[in-house]
Design a protein around this nucleic acid. Structure first.
Lengths: 155, 155
DNA sequence: TCAGTTGTTTCACTACCTGAAACAACCATG
DNA sequence: CATGGTTGTTTCAGGTAGTGAAACAACTGA
């Protein structure tokens, strides 16, 4: 699936774009952490809460989505639960599984967070509507290209 | 300098682009961590080493570049130094400061890492040269828009 | 029934990260 | 040149994130 020539160096234009993407990533990441921090959340907590604000998920699936070990999710959910942002529910179909769900307050916090992403407004504001559409198209193709590792439902 | 109406919700197109950027960020970040991991480096170690592969830097400046506390840098440099990838040198002009510098092996590791970023090749490979140029332009404008916080030299 | 599997947690361990305090070296001023 | 303030680095305590192994309960299939 991967490149046939893993050591071939990309051309200058590609390298420059990679550099720029790296900068954007750094900016976005920093802004995200800061927005989370303003709500006394860590980045990991914010990411988990964002997932749960869409739909409740069992611990196991949370771990898969966050690409980490289930034992790690336990701790993050513990801390969010202690603050009343998340709760654990039993799964009626399988008494082993605990379904983590955002509470009303948790959903509110997640919405707040999403809407406060400064990065969304400021740098993007420099682009016209047409340019944003062009950017959307390019990003979609980048992401679609290597087919996101969606090994989720066929588990 | 920021938006006048911090709570105004962005339009749908903007939100979608933000979503896509988020996805790109997640992909890039994961790939970066993985590439680092393959060389037995953590993400933080890899980022610090990348900086030092360009030029030696005093601890204080490293902290500024990494946007973290100097006390944190101490530990990361400690671990890299223990592995021979980085060394601390005295600053002839100021006996208080320690200048961290990548060793030959450290520079090699950083170059390796940079060239192995899969994200550089695969998703970008889906774009034509023209599209890459367009993307470069858009990213540049996004980053230039809010003037990167370059409070570095006037320190 | 009972062996194997799966979902969650606990535990030990490492790394990251912050803030406060210690310490050395610099610098300015009297 | 003494001395007090500042700056650069480290140490420490404390909390979060992350892994991997082991424990445990509950499910599943033979």
């Amino acid at each position: 699936m991967a490149s046939e020539y893993p050591t071939r160096r990309p051309d200058a234009l590609t390298m420059e774009v990679v550099e720029l993407i790296g900068d954007v990533v750094a900016r976005f990441y920093a802004d995200y952490e800061e927005a989370a921090g303003e709500r006394a959340l860590t980045g990991a907590q914010a990411r988990l809460l964002s997932l749960l604000s869409l739909e409740p998920l069992p611990m196991r699936k949370l771990a898969k989505r966050l690409k980490c070990e289930p034992s790690n999710v336990t701790g993050i959910v513990d801390r969010l639960e202690a603050r009343g942002l998340v709760e654990r529910r039993p799964d009626p179909n399988d008494r082993r599984v605990k379904v983590a769900a955002a509470t009303e307050e948790g959903r509110r916090a997640a919405r707040d967070l999403r809407e406060s992403l400064r990065f969304a407004r400021e740098p993007l504001a420099a682009l016209s509507g047409e340019e944003r559409e062009a950017l959307r198209g390019l990003l979609r193709r980048m992401l679609g290209a290597d087919a996101g590792p969606e090994a989720d439902s066929p588990a």
